[in-house]
Measured scan of single mutants.
Amino acid sequence: MLDDRARMEAAKKEKVEQILAEFQLQEEDLKKVMRRMQKEMDRGLRLETHEEASVKMLPTYVRSTPEGSEVGDFLSLDLGGTNFRVMLVKVGEGEEGQWSVKTKHQMYSIPEDAMTGTAEMLFDYISECISDFLDKHQMKHKKLPLGFTFSFPVRHEDIDKGILLNWTKGFKASGAEGNNVVGLLRDAIKRRGDFEMDVVAMVNDTVATMISCYYEDHQCEVGMIVGTGCNACYMEEMQNVELVEGDEGRMCVNTEWGAFGDSGELDEFLLEYDRLVDESSANPGQQLYEKLIGGKYMGELVRLVLLRLVDENLLFHGEASEQLRTRGAFETRFVSQVESDTGDRKQIYNILSTLGLRPSTTDCDIVRRACESVSTRAAHMCSAGLAGVINRMRESRSEDVMRITVGVDGSVYKLHPSFKERFHASVRRLTPSCEITFIESEEGSGRGAALVSAVACKKACMLGQ
């Protein structure tokens, strides 16, 4: 009897593995994704193909990295998701002549009506938060230079001027797309009239992360975010950046690689679950690469896999709870928690219980395998993109072996128990001629924006502006 049951459990697990095998990517698959990513990057950089390229390769006008001589107080704003952060950054000489960066910050959550109302409502709310922060720190009387981390696709015309191309991540505030974001912020500050600010720089969160990590390690020339969304930036040779005049030196390019796949480059790798996630998203047909990796989508992918296993009578005796059938019910943090389970399955059992399920031991094991399959594919897909960037940098610099540091931020990278190990191992397999160091950014977005502002202020002083 026991043997029969054991055989049935083994057969069930084997069927589960057959279904989950769809998520496995072979090294040849990853090399294919990497080569296609490089081709799209090239198209994004070139003037004649930029418009139709899915990977936009947006110039950021960040050319210099901090040298350690900029000092002063800077205000930093960070808008990239449902939370908005205001930070005071003091850049100065530390002990023994070292450079020191001290920060104080406060988080504000953005109400739904500000995210989806008008641009005026959104930026009025942001300036209200700045006003509140300055009151708390008794700094209303000071006109501070301000660095703005704005983590949406922007076409820069200068370091302090950028046109919002399109909202992502659930934002829909009308009247912002096609307009200068810094102008919208300046107008809102003017409307309030109770404080003055000098907006000197606007950067993407990947750029802010790279600059913040450069402060720790001067070989950091790539910034990457794996959180709600997924994106990367890197220092490109100016001669390859056709959208900006000049051939000397390097400029940081914001790849906006989340949109890779929007022209069909990933079609052969998309599964039924991916198509369902895409169809029910706020932007169907867009940001397809990001939807395979980002935390906004990972939990939902797992939920759809679990429903398939229920329908195949391989999980929960073929019956799903009402909660499990509800879109968004299986949160991405559950994926991390399930994979963090120590082996007694308590954590998995508790999560499934909150979803109205009474799982068996085998159910718990199957749910864990589903989570591992989805998150491992995410790590491997992400590795193909980064390997594409790094191999490109090595080739354009004609280096036999390139040493490089990548600064990384984002909740999936930082909080998932195995993502970074799987990701690092896969990147290294795909970049055999590179020695890569990964560092995690601390308060990256805010500190990085302030350091970019410090560079901009120093330049302005040198130019006598």
Rank of each mutant, 00 (worst) to 15 (best):
D4T: 14
R5C: 06
A10R: 14
K12G: 12
K12Y: 11
K13Q: 07
K13V: 11
V16S: 14
I19A: 14
I19H: 03
I19K: 10
L20S: 07
A21P: 05
A21N: 15
F23S: 05
L25N: 10
Q26F: 11
E27T: 13
D29R: 12
K31Q: 08
K31F: 07
K32Q: 12
K32L: 10
M34W: 14
M34D: 11
Q38V: 10
M41D: 00
M41F: 10
D42L: 11
L45E: 01
L47N: 09
L47P: 06
E48N: 13
E48R: 12
E48H: 07
E52D: 10
S54Y: 05
K56F: 06
L58H: 00
P59Q: 03
P59N: 05
V62G: 02
R63D: 15
R63T: 14
R63L: 08
S64H: 15
S64Q: 11
T65C: 15
E67W: 15
E70F: 13
V71Q: 15
G72M: 06
L75R: 04
S76R: 04
S76Q: 03
L77T: 03
G80F: 03
T82G: 03
T82A: 02
N83H: 02
M87D: 01
M87C: 11
L88W: 15
V89R: 05
V89M: 12
V91G: 05
G92A: 11
G94K: 14
E95K: 06
E96I: 14
G97H: 08
Q98F: 05
Q98E: 10
K104H: 09
M107E: 06
Y108D: 00
I110R: 02
G117D: 06
T118V: 04
T118N: 01
E120A: 13
M121E: 08
F123M: 00
F123C: 03
F123H: 03
Y125K: 06
I126Q: 00
S131K: 04
D132T: 04
D135M: 08
D135S: 07
H137T: 10
M139D: 06
H141L: 01
L144F: 07
L146A: 06
T149F: 04
T149Q: 06
T149I: 02
F150S: 04
V154E: 01
H156E: 03
D158P: 01
I159T: 05
I163Y: 04
L164D: 01
N166Y: 13
G170C: 04
G170T: 02
E177K: 08
G178T: 07
V181C: 03
L184V: 01
R186V: 01
R186S: 03
R191F: 01
R192A: 07
D194T: 10
D198M: 14
V199K: 01
M202V: 04
N204S: 10
T206C: 08
T206G: 07
T206A: 01
T209C: 01
T209I: 06
M210E: 02
S212E: 03
S212V: 03
S212F: 04
C213R: 06
D217L: 14
H218T: 05
Q219R: 14
V222T: 05
V226G: 03
G227S: 02
T228A: 04
T228M: 00
T228Y: 00
C233A: 06
C233G: 07
M238G: 08
Q239V: 14
Q239Y: 03
N240Q: 15
V241M: 15
V241Y: 04
E242A: 06
E242Y: 09
L243A: 09
E245H: 06
G246D: 07
D247Q: 13
E248K: 08
R250F: 15
M251W: 03
C252D: 00
E256A: 01
W257E: 01
A259E: 02
F260I: 00
D262N: 08
D262A: 13
G264L: 11
G264K: 14
G264A: 10
L266A: 03
L270T: 13
L270V: 12
E272A: 11
E272G: 14
D274M: 04
D274W: 01
R275Y: 14
L276C: 07
V277F: 00
D278L: 07
S281L: 03
G285W: 11
Q286V: 14
Y289W: 07
E290A: 04
L292W: 08
K296Y: 03
K296P: 03
Y297Q: 11
M298Q: 13
G299C: 04
R303A: 05
L304H: 13
L304V: 10
V305S: 15
L306V: 06
L307G: 13
E312R: 12
L315K: 01
L315R: 02
F316T: 12
F316Y: 09
H317S: 15
G318I: 08
G318Y: 13
G318V: 13
A320T: 11
A320K: 13
S321W: 08
E322F: 11
E322Y: 13
R325Q: 07
A329T: 08
F330M: 13
T332N: 06
T332S: 14
V335C: 15
S336F: 11
E339L: 14
D341M: 14
G343E: 06
D344S: 11
D344R: 10
R345I: 06
R345F: 12
K346V: 13
K346C: 10
Q347F: 12
I348S: 12
Y349V: 09
N350R: 13
S353R: 12
T354K: 11
L355G: 07
G356R: 10
S360I: 13
S360A: 12
D365F: 07
V367I: 08
V367R: 00
V367L: 13
S375R: 06
S375N: 13
S375G: 10
R377M: 00
A378F: 03
A379Q: 04
H380D: 12
A384D: 00
G385H: 01
L386C: 13
A387N: 03
G388A: 11
N391Y: 04
R394Y: 12
S398P: 13
D400T: 09
R403M: 12
R403G: 12
V406E: 05
V406I: 12
G407P: 01
V408R: 02
V408K: 03
V408Q: 05
V408Y: 03
D409W: 03
D409Q: 04
G410L: 08
G410A: 01
V412M: 15
Y413A: 07
L415W: 13
P417V: 14
P417Q: 07
S418K: 15
R422G: 12
A425E: 12
A425N: 09
V427I: 12
V427W: 10
L430N: 08
T431G: 10
T431P: 11
P432Y: 09
S433T: 11
C434M: 08
C434K: 08
E435M: 09
I436L: 08
T437I: 10
I439Y: 09
E442M: 15
G446H: 00
R447Q: 03
G448L: 05
L451Q: 01
A456W: 14
K458E: 13
K458I: 11
C461R: 13
M462E: 10
M462C: 09
L463D: 15
L463R: 13
G464C: 06
Q465E: 06
